[in-house]
Simulated scan of single mutants.
Amino acid sequence: MERYAAEITQRLDDLVDPVVESVYLVVPTGTFHDFAFRNIRVIETGRLIGGNLGGYLWEQIWFARFLLSHKADGYLPLNFVPVLKPDVVVTIHDGNALSHPEFYPTVRKRLYRVLASVLLRVARRRSSRILTVSHASRDELVDRCNFNASYVAVAPPGVDHITEDASRTAMNVPEPFYLALSSATYNKNFEWVLETAVANPNQTFLIAGKGDFDAILKSHGYHAPPANVRHLGYVSDEQRNWLYSRCAAFLFPSRYEGFGLPPLEAACLGAPVIVSDIPPMREIFGDGFRYINPDVPATDLQAVTNCPDVGALRAEFSWTASAVKILAHLRRTHADKRGAIVHGKLSN
């Protein structure tokens, strides 16, 4: 989601007309940023407080206060709307807080789900316009979360940021290897990777991404990863690009996604991909793929490996095209106003 916020904001800067629109990126005071915009002005207001909830509190207090005091209209790219100023345009990436309580097994996660559920309901009732990242996510918001279909539009992520000459930083890892990259959450289904590694002891499996990997291991009955599995933790964009370009295949056995950007990124750097049979993956890759059952480990990896049509993917998924859609909705929704405020808290 952080990638979505950053890329869309950058593309909006290229699209807005500063002669007729006053557009601002609002960020917490003192937070690091290196934005270099031509048409969007960066404004700092308020401060982050409250630890992991700091971003949400800032949105609810300081961003809402800014909109109200300036009589401005807002866009938030990361799921939630301010309760005090809910009539904004918002991108909701998925509705799992309302539709999948099983994704929140711990007390801390259940408390977050309560907060997220409240804010999603506020967005459902009061936001000016809702965008989401896939038709699968739109169907979920409408069918399972009771959003009004006429107010939900689709603006998917793009792959414009992944070019064939993208910067790459080599890593000291054994080759060949299969790669999985995502945050360590339940729906990402690292259990499939672990069990597939056990079923393929002569292959090397690398797992990259933020999160508590040890907790994932313990939740699936592992005291340590299988001998042929290596956890890399967080990797930079340059390291990620190198891993994508060198892997035997990129593994994405997710049980649930709003969209699912990593396999699209990997494919654009030449990686074959192995993806689960869930609606967003079929939306991206089509019906001609060999999809995996996310509950059944693979014993024959070659049999479920796919080589996507990269040209078609690049043509279909563009950050610029989605930014054009978002700006059109902002202008249409606020046709009687002078401009929009672009929310600049790019992560929570």
Rank of each mutant, 00 (worst) to 15 (best):
M1K: 12
R3S: 11
E7W: 02
I8D: 13
L15C: 09
V16R: 14
V16C: 06
V19S: 08
S22N: 14
V23W: 11
V23K: 05
L25Y: 10
V27W: 03
T31L: 04
F35N: 15
F37D: 11
I40A: 11
G50I: 05
G54K: 10
F66V: 02
D73F: 08
Y75N: 00
G95C: 05
L98V: 11
R110D: 08
A116M: 15
L119A: 14
L120K: 07
A123I: 08
R125L: 14
S127V: 08
S137Y: 01
R138K: 11
D139N: 11
E140S: 00
L141F: 06
N146H: 15
A153G: 03
M171I: 01
E175G: 03
V193C: 09
E195H: 12
P201R: 09
Q203G: 00
I207Q: 05
I207F: 00
A208F: 09
G209A: 04
K210R: 13
D212I: 02
I216K: 06
S219E: 14
P225I: 08
V235K: 08
W242T: 07
W242P: 07
L243D: 04
S254A: 09
G260L: 13
P263E: 00
C268L: 00
G270C: 01
V273G: 04
P279H: 12
P280W: 01
E283A: 05
I284F: 00
G286T: 02
D295E: 13
D309C: 05
R332Q: 14
K337N: 09
G339P: 07
